[in-house]
Design a binder for these strands. Structure first.
Length: 479
RNA sequence: GCCGAGGUGGCAGAAUGGUUAAUGCGACGGACUGCAGAUCCGUUUCCUGGGGGUUCGAUUCCCUCCCUCGGCUCCA
């Protein structure tokens, strides 16, 4: 297991990571509330934690990655009421759409996406414990509240002090609460809305306790890593700490807290409530997953990142094209020639350079996931590969050696993934024959014939590019 | 008001107590090419919010001020 450092927002310092029970690592990330389509801000967080899970697995940790689904809350109910849908059905549908986008984005590292409503028994049990221990109380209407004053460390995670919380518009004065900062963990039932029986009457779970009930069941009283967007740190994560540590008496709930920076649109946070969103599926349709992943990973994960709908991904697409060009070229040659392909060995030292670079890439990621620096190093590798000139002369083993850093990028960053081409097996036999015929035509100056061949291949979705070391070809997506 | 994160070239965005402050985009110039497309090479000297302090040396550490963003019970 590789040693790595991670910035822990609870202690506000970069710390060496030490798992509770190596090599296992419990990773819990707050997922989205599926009441409407995911936007590119959500996806930034998900891509980052995808890279975390990929890196840890590469380094020998056995990661159990849970991402919860808050499939029932006020917003889901409100949205369902607008459209006349069943709330749980709406959430289920939206979540499936979200999963489809994650699949397109290459986010496949999550082991389990639990629905909050599948954990009502655990939630009720935890509330019962809190009530029994005196941390929570039932209000007259059957709702149950957590009494913040009973939990002394409240505010430690986020640095908030209860007495400094602004008694502003959003901290409503609610006669059911003993104190304004108390938060609801069981909401008494409203007729027509989904509800469950409980010792306090019919109702449904409050937001914060869903997570602590699920993590208690799935990851235990204490676990290694808890992640989410920085906007969740207060009150949501603060509340989780209060609930779990009060209920179990064990602290800390999570050994490391990772918070991802937000995506900004025109300088302000992208959010569904503000309406300034770029939908994830639309962006994937227009640019594909790789430029988007590059765009996210091109910044420090903790910093705010400005998303310009007109420019950001146009630029990322250009940048990704350059970054991936040598990788694509190498992969094509390896695919078509096989690992046994004959040819020259690499010049002295190049293989060692590739291995050293892979080690350096791991080292960079192990330093609080410095994806941007890893990407810069991959650009320099592209230049190094370019210096070697015509790649077609190298053996399969040599080409594989050159591909090493890109294989790392594929494994950890999820970049350099090529769309499946399906028919390429058969085409890899046919296209070279056509290219030879075309090369002969060009050599004798018969450009009409050469262009005819090029057009014929183009009609089949095969695009040609003449370059100094011959003609390369590829399938063009769609037709 | 309180808590937190930031301020770096035309733009995006890294890093660092010390030679030319990474990388990418853009721009400009060139190479290659039958054409197309793509690629490659070079250039882009004057860029670290203001003011103090520590130091031989500060963009980096400390203090202060200004500004931006996020959170303050819906939020990735």
């Amino acid at each position: 297991m590789r040693r790595f450092h991670v910035y822990d927002s609870r202690t506000r310092e970069t710390r060496v990571f030490a798992p509770i029970t190596p090599p296992r690592v419990g990773l819990y990330v707050c997922g989205m509330t599926p009441y409407s389509a995911a936007h590119v801000g959500h996806a930034r967080t998900m891509v980052f934690f995808d890279v975390v899970a990929r890196a840890l697995r590469r380094w020998g940790y056995r990661v159990f990655y849970v991402q919860n689904v808050t499939n029932l809350d006020d917003k889901v109910i409100a949205r369902a009421a607008e459209s006349g849908d069943d709330p749980l059905g709406l959430a289920d549908h939206q979540f499936r759409e979200y999963l489809a986008s994650m699949e397109r984005l290459g986010v496949r590292s999550v082991n389990l996406y639990p629905y909050a409503t599948d954990y009502v028994p655990e939630i009720v049990a935890q509330i019962r414990t809190l009530v029994d221990k005196g941390y929570a109380y039932r209000a007259d209407d059957g709702s149950v509240y957590f009494e913040v004053a009973k939990f002394a460390p409240y505010g430690a995670l986020s640095g908030q002090r209860v007495e400094e919380l602004r008694p502003g518009a959003r901290l409503e004065l609610d006669p059911r609460k003993r104190s304004p900062e108390d938060f609801v963990i069981w909401k008494s039932a409203t007729p027509g809305e989904p509800s469950w029986e409980s010792p306090w009457g019919p109702g449904r779970p409050g937001w914060h306790i869903e997570d602590t009930a699920m993590t208690g069941r799935l990851l235990g009283d204490r676990y290694d890593l808890h992640g989410g967007g920085i906007d969740l740190i207060f009150p949501h994560h603060e509340a989780e700490v209060a609930l779990a540590e009060s209920a179990t008496g064990v602290a800390p709930l999570a050994n490391y807290w990772l918070h991802g920076g937000l995506l900004l649109l025109e300088g302000t946070k992208m959010s569904k409530s503000l309406g300034n969103v770029a939908r994830l599926d639309a962006v994937l349709d227009e640019y594909g997953p790789m430029p988007l992943r590059l765009f996210y990973l091109n910044a420090s994960y903790r910093s705010p990142l400005e998303f310009d709908p007109e420019k950001s991904l146009v630029e990322a697409r250009e940048a990704y094209g350059r970054l991936a060009q040598p990788a694509t070229r190498l992969a094509e040659l390896i695919d078509r020639g096989g690992a046994e392909r004959e040819g020259e060995e690499l010049p002295d030292g190049v293989e060692v350079e590739a291995d050293d670079l892979v080690e350096r890439l791991d080292t960079l990621l192990a330093s609080d996931f410095a994806t941007r620096e890893a990407i810069a190093a991959l650009y320099s590798w592209g230049r190094r590969v370019g210096e070697l000139g015509n790649l077609t002369r190298f053996s399969g083993a040599g080409l594989s050696g050159l591909y090493g850093p890109y294989a790392w990028g594929e494994e950890v960053l999820g970049l350099f993934v090529r769309p499946a081409t399906g028919a390429s097996g058969a085409w890899s036999e046919i296209v070279p024959v056509a290219l030879e015929a075309r090369a002969r035509a060009r050599a004798r100056g018969d450009f009409a014939e050469a262009d005819r061949i090029r057009d014929a291949l183009a009609a089949q979705g095969v695009r040609l590019e003449d370059g100094p070391d011959g003609t390369r070809w590829e399938f063009v997506a769609s037709g």
